[in-house]
Write a protein that binds this DNA or RNA. Structure first.
Length: 376
RNA sequence: GCGGAAUUGGUGAAGUGGUUAACACGGUAGAUUGUGGCUCUAUUAUGCGUGGGUUCGACUCCCACAUUUCGCC
């Protein structure tokens, strides 16, 4: 049975939305943050640890699972849920981002994309049909269309022809999509340009997907302003009753600004990657746990935090683990950071309910970044 | 006791009689947004075992001493 989305409430002052996702008899609230588990595992964490934090959707990656262990193995295991022992909803990325990160522009053709296998250097070819077929077999709950993810600062002419091709790819993918229990999302591109986002959104909506993603953001050191434009210019043309997902967005302030512009779903590698590099989110900004000043700090990462790491371990101990490159340190910080983003989402939802989202944004900006939000 | 070799930062070390002593690791900071547990950036010895001497100028040459190490008795 397909995952169900219901729009519950729309904020009066902003475009923010409250919604519910129903899946396998359980209900999850949106806006939601989705941790990334590229290789069918949220790095260092057991599914039980995620569920203890009331996790919702998690991500896996088509490209990586295609190469290893291969979609047939996952299928033989009974699908991604059984293979990785996660019974919550799972979303798979299409491999489109790997077009951006691993292929050269000249290797992108109308038919598909040539990749260099990052594991052994083999030449690979991925098409929209292939990406959807792999995702059908992986049996995720939400599949992504195969798109090109051009840099946000690419020129208008390049973006235009890229979008047109991405729309043709979306149509081709939809045509072969054959898993009745799986949603399929289209992806809106167009950099920070109003006309391109509008065109991309309207054309993608015409194809009638189960939900819509906003891609091509936070991939080119573009300005925050351009990123937020990309959000707003996309959601303006998307249907109210469908999920909207900003791909790859995970910096706390960007999530809040995305929600304000009508986005429901966010995913990012940042909580787990920052954890592996020794950084922790706190309500007063990110801290670098490796800093010498924490070596004898026998207190939790953040007082009052309800996560497993903060309830049982001190900053001094976690610092020691990170400095000694012990994986338990990365695990504790991953738990803390994901839990932080889950708490952030809960705060966002609460403030939408209370009609105080903009005030929350300003206060958060001040607390987290130590700077008052400059209002223009 | 005699003879040889060595002595450069937290570590391993390169180096030349002449501006700011290479490089690597480590340390200290920073970066990281649809994940290659990768990586990148900045910074880190006012000093070359100690004391003399030669020289315009010594970490580099000479002498003594100390320490380490190898060989011989």
């Amino acid at each position: 049975m397909k995952l169900q989305f219901k729009l519950e409430e729309t904020d009066k002052k902003t475009r923010a939305r409250l919604g519910t996702i129903t899946y396998q008899g359980k209900t999850y609230e949106t806006p939601m943050f989705m941790p990334v588990g590229t290789n069918a595992t949220v790095k260092t964490l057991a599914p039980e640890e995620l569920k203890a934090m009331h996790s919702g959707i998690i991500l896996a990656n088509t490209y990586h699972l295609w190469l290893r262990p291969g979609e047939d193995i996952v299928s033989a295991a009974g699908g991604l849920h059984k293979f990785m022992n996660y019974d919550g909803p799972i979303l798979t990325d299409s491999g489109g981002f790997q077009v951006f990160s691993l292929a050269k522009p000249k290797d992108i053709t109308e038919e598909g994309v040539y990749f260099k296998n990052h594991l052994n250097g083999d030449k690979l070819f991925l098409t929209p049909e292939k990406s959807i077929a792999i995702q059908n077999k992986l049996d995720s709950d939400i599949a992504m269309s195969f798109d090109e993810c051009p840099p946000a600062t690419a020129d208008h002419a390049y973006l235009k022809q890229s979008i047109e091709r991405t729309i043709r790819w979306a149509e081709r993918g939809k045509k072969v999509h054959s898993n009745p229990n799986q949603m399929l999302f289209g992806i809106v591109q167009g950099g920070p340009h109003y006309d391109l986002r509008k065109y991309s959104a309207l054309e993608t909506v015409k194809l009638d997907f189960d939900g819509y993603s906003i891609g091509g953001v936070a991939n080119d050191h573009e300005s925050k302003e351009d990123m937020y434009k990309a959000f707003a210019y996309s959601t303006e043309f998307l249907p109210e009753d469908k999920l909207r997902y900003a791909m790859g967005i995970g910096e706390p302030i960007d999530i809040i600004e995305g929600v304000i512009r009508g986005i429901d779903l966010f995913d990012c590698v940042s909580p787990t990657r920052l954890a592996r590099h020794g950084h922790a989110h706190t309500w007063h900004g990110n801290i670098n746990v490796k800093n010498n000043k924490y070596k004898d700090m026998f207190k939790p990462i953040e007082e009052g935090c309800n996560c497993y790491a903060c309830k049982h371990y001190t900053l001094a101990y976690i610092r020691h683990l990170i400095v000694a490159k012990e994986t338990f340190g990365a695990r504790l910080l991953s738990i803390h950071n994901i839990n932080f983003l889950y708490r952030l989402m809960a705060e966002i939802r609460k403030n939408i309910k209370n009609n105080t989202l903009l005030e929350f944004r300003d206060q958060f900006q001040e607390d987290f970044y130590g700077v008052k939000n400059e209002k223009n």
